[in-house]
């Protein structure tokens, strides 16, 4: 297996620089058999329990100032996404304009975290976001299925990075994972990470295809061990996509990773989060499962397209006391 390069979390101020992995983890990635032993030695996840905890977290009542804070925080965490066959540079530039100024009437609305597009339209996004600090994320590695050769995946990644992507959202080889070829999945992530250079790497597990929470936990650790900066739930092309219990299991993984290594890694639920209510429930989970230090776009993102407008509408409702409706936010 290939040695993991250090994650690029140096970008995050205040995060301890990642040193060599602690002995327990160095041993875990020594060879295929060790990796397998390590992943299968992780504590199991009880389905009823994890779903019960999610349901309990979802009953938190977030009102007034705390809701306003949550809305602004959620906006700043959005990876505004378009991943369609019909995407054009024009469409991407429109999205970039939205990302810069989500609500033209309310200049104090924070910018989103990034715009997320296919590699061939990265240049348009870079163009539209120059000097704003908004990231340009590109999916890569034969997204969404990941069904291609490693060479093609690496070329895909370099293509996006060279076009100016600051963040790469890769997919793992679910087929290899489900047949237990963990070493292969690990190596692929390590090599993609290397190809990313300075770009941030988000590792999409496609949890809808992994099916069990035990698998979600194992795949999260696999991605963290291989140097992924973020673990991400889904491509958005498979249902179910992001669910609260899946996000919870991932949050547990990054929390346990921090306890073991001192490093902070991120989580990105993507797909299916469309309402402010859903976003706030996720933030409550971030707050109470991982901890308050994860309540920042450096460590938590929402992969979404329609969520942003709902956040903007709810933000106006908070400010004016009445609901204005979808005609008062821009459709991009």
């Amino acid at each position: 297996m290939v040695a993991p390069s250090t994650p690029s979390s140096a970008e995050a101020p205040g995060t301890p620089a990642p040193g060599p992995p602690p002995p327990a983890l160095a041993d875990a990635v020594r060879d295929d058999a060790s990796l397998r032993r390590f992943l299968h030695g992780l504590p199991g996840v009880d389905q009823v329990g994890v779903e019960g905890r999610s349901a309990a977290l979802a009953t938190r009542s977030i009102k007034r100032a705390s809701k306003m804070w949550a809305i602004d925080t959620a906006i700043s965490m959005v990876d505004l996404t378009t991943l369609e066959g019909a995407d054009t540079p024009g469409k991407v530039r429109t999205l970039a304009a939205k990302a810069r100024r989500p609500d033209p009437d309310q200049p104090d609305v924070p910018r989103v975290a990034a715009v997320c597009v296919y590699p061939d339209v990265v240049a348009a996004a870079v163009d539209g976001l120059a000097g704003t600090g908004v990231g340009v994320a590109s999916v890569a590695t034969a997204f969404p299925s990941g069904r291609s050769s490693l060479q093609v995946k690496l070329a895909d990644t370099r293509y996006a990075v060279e076009a100016g992507a600051t963040e790469i959202d890769m997919v793992i080889d679910r087929g290899a994972f489900l047949t237990g070829r963990y070493g292969q999945v690990f190596d692929e992530i390590v090599q993609i990470k290397h190809a990313c250079g300075d770009a941030h790497l988000k590792v999409i597990l496609e949890t809808g295809e992994l099916a069990t929470y035990d698998n979600v936990r194992r795949a999260s650790w696999l991605a963290l061990l291989a140097g992924g900066d973020f673990v991400k739930t889904s491509t958005g092309k498979v249902s179910p996509a992001a669910t609260l219990p899946v996000t919870q299991v991932m949050l547990q993984a990054v929390r346990d990773w921090r306890d073991l290594t001192g490093e902070l890694r991120g989580v990105k639920p993507a797909g299916g989060i469309r309402t402010t209510k859903d976003a706030v429930k996720h933030l409550v989970a971030v707050h109470e499962v991982a901890g308050p230090e994860w309540l920042t776009p450096r460590l938590f993102r929402f992969g979404a397209s329609s969520l942003l407008n709902d956040l903007l509408m709810q933000r106006r409702t908070q400010l004016t006391g009445h609901y204005s409706g979808p005609d008062y936010v821009t459709v991009d």
Binding site: K63, K67, L283, P292, E293, L295, T296
Partner: peptide, 13 residues
């Protein structure tokens, strides 16, 4: 946004 944010839930009686 500060690094270690305190998110106080407003009272919801």
């Amino acid at each position: 946004m500060t690094d270690h944010t305190v998110w106080d839930y407003a009272p919801a009686p």
